[in-house]
Computed example of a mutant assay.
Amino acid sequence: MAGGYDQVIFDLDGVVYLIDKPIPGAVEAVETLRGRGTAVAYATNNASRRAAEVAALLTGMGVPAEPAEVLNSAGAAAALLAGKLPAGSPVLVVGADALRDEVTEAGLTPVQTLEDEPVAVVQGYGPDVGWRILAEAVLAVRGGALWVATNTDRTLPSPRGPLPGNGSLVAVLRTALDREPDVVVGKPEPALFTTAAAQAGARRPLVVGDRLDTDIQGAVTAGLDSLLVLTGVSSPADLLAAELHRRPAFVAADLSGLFRPANEASVPLDAPEADGWRVTRDGHKATLDGAGDPVVALRLLCAATWDGVPLTGLEPASDAARELLNSWGL
């Protein structure tokens, strides 16, 4: 698959690492791409680390990375504000120190209270964000400040399961204000991807992500092919139910899919059977029979569900099929 592209743009959380540990195969995947001369970039919605910190974290895990290869929503949000506001403007920062540093470097003044008369609020993920700063942000936005969210990911992947992400914190303000942010900077907006491609001079980039609602939708919006890996947030059931603007070109269990033939990962797989699996369609029902690679079964079933079969219309006809559908929560 990777041989058909001149750049691979990776999401990070759930694709390359979980919190602070590399996902099995990630180091080898990046090393193989670099050895082939394929450009690599990292595009993340996580605003809790600056690009240099992300690059250092990756390098410490054995994944080679340069700061210039990392594009994050914190830097993008600060750059957007710098383009809209006079130099030195006070900006109330809700998030981690990395976001505060980006705002400072962009020539703006980070503040913490309504009394500082902020003209904008920028909100990004931070593990220590609490009620007090959220309350100040509500007051500032209600008073007329521009509200910029770095991203709206509802959850963050972790070894213990999904945890609240910036989208959950944005929901606090949304509920209190009864309105949406003025601007959402990160994925699914396409800017991180298009910037990464432009910096590398890539003509045919491939986006690799674990979330349909950010990584894959952003790639579709940008007109780029994408690979969904099942090591993070989005599940097989999510893919089966995906709307048109959230459908990837490929799906794989993990990053090893990059180095297999593209036609072994393309989705949907529009065939009656493959690799020991067979799907029989009858109106609004589809029956899965046989046994084999779960990803092949997923690709076969996507052909049915994306053509109108509801998830409730999927039925097993073998023990392996029943076990697989159960494991997907179906």
Rank of each mutant, 00 (worst) to 15 (best):
T195L: 05
L212H: 06
L330D: 11
L139F: 12
A271E: 06
L80Y: 12
E69R: 02
P294C: 01
E315F: 07
T152P: 03
A198C: 12
A2N: 09
A304M: 08
A198G: 09
N46C: 15
T194C: 03
T312S: 12
S266W: 12
N151R: 10
N45Y: 05
D210F: 07
P164A: 13
A219N: 05
S318K: 06
F259C: 01
V170T: 15
G107N: 05
G95C: 04
G165Y: 14
E273Y: 12
D293S: 07
S234L: 06
A68T: 02
A96N: 12
A47N: 12
A242L: 10
G14A: 08
V93Q: 11
A317I: 09
V15D: 04
K285M: 01
A74D: 00
N263Q: 13
D307F: 01
G37L: 15
A55C: 13
P67Q: 07
P261Q: 10
T194R: 15
P67F: 07
E323T: 15
D215E: 14
S235N: 09
E315D: 12
E243V: 06
L163C: 14
D307A: 11
A87L: 02
N326K: 14
L156I: 15
D13S: 15
L108F: 01
Q112N: 10
V170D: 14
D293H: 03
D225T: 13
D319T: 10
L18T: 09
G107I: 05
D282M: 14
L325N: 00
V229S: 05
R203S: 15
S158F: 04
L228C: 11
G209H: 10
K187G: 11
P118K: 03
D213M: 11
A274I: 00
A320E: 04
L114C: 03
A291V: 00
V148G: 08
G290F: 03
R203N: 04
D182F: 04
P64H: 01
N166M: 10
H245K: 02
P67S: 06
V279G: 05
V119M: 00
S327A: 13
A87K: 05
G201P: 07
P205T: 10
A145D: 02
R49A: 10
P181W: 05
V70C: 00
A237P: 01
P181V: 14
G124V: 12
A55S: 06
E69K: 04
T305F: 01
V63S: 13
S266R: 15
S89M: 03
A262Q: 09
V229T: 03
D289R: 11
S318W: 07
V279P: 06
W277M: 02
Q7R: 04
E53F: 04
Y5L: 14
S168E: 14
V207T: 10
T150D: 13
